[in-house]
Amino acid sequence: MLVKMSGLKQLFTGFRFLTPVTLSMLLAGCSASVINIEGNYPSPLVNQLPLTLGVIYDDNFSNYSFTEIDEYSGDDQYIINSGASQVDLFNTILPAVFSQVVFLESADDIASHPELDMIFQPGIEEFQVGLPQKTRLNVYEIWVKYNMRLSAPDGNSIADWVMTAYGKSPQETFGSVDAGVNEAAVEAFRDLAATFSLGFANIPEVNDWLRTNNVL
């Protein structure tokens, strides 16, 4: 037994210089590619609503990350971090849609802002990625399902609705998966911004509230 142990020790000692190299090669082969979505979003050209809106981005939203799994190996293939970019998006569109926007850390801050008319909290319910190597289409696709919640400062719900966003980018335009996925995601976020800024006042419950409060 002792002989066997020393033999093993010798074996490991002999190959110890190979271990870091081998490990790094194995890790490089298995590790997921991280894609941080980055984009610039234009401010929408819409008539502002004369309202003061409080906005809460919870941690799930502001740190949102989606992991695409390799269907053959079951390993993580791509980790798509889009939270920061989505916060940028809402930080751009909300001040264009509402005359005043107050960004809140949490619901606890509502009490210290008596000027607020309504509280808005976006959330992501689903995030899907279509990669050309899987879909056999020549485009990268991103589809996102949002849950938007709007409430009065006292906590009563005004509206709770679902919005979807879709973006695609042609495969041949982009040399890398990262760039293709990034462009598709930016297109999807623009799609959301467009439908949100044009359709917000037409959400039935929101429209009722705006009419009741003589905003429209």
Partner: peptide, 13 residues
């Protein structure tokens, strides 16, 4: 044009 006319000329709008 698309940026300055946003959101009126996006694929869905």
């Amino acid at each position: 044009f698309l940026d300055e006319m946003f959101p009126f000329f996006e694929p869905r709008t």
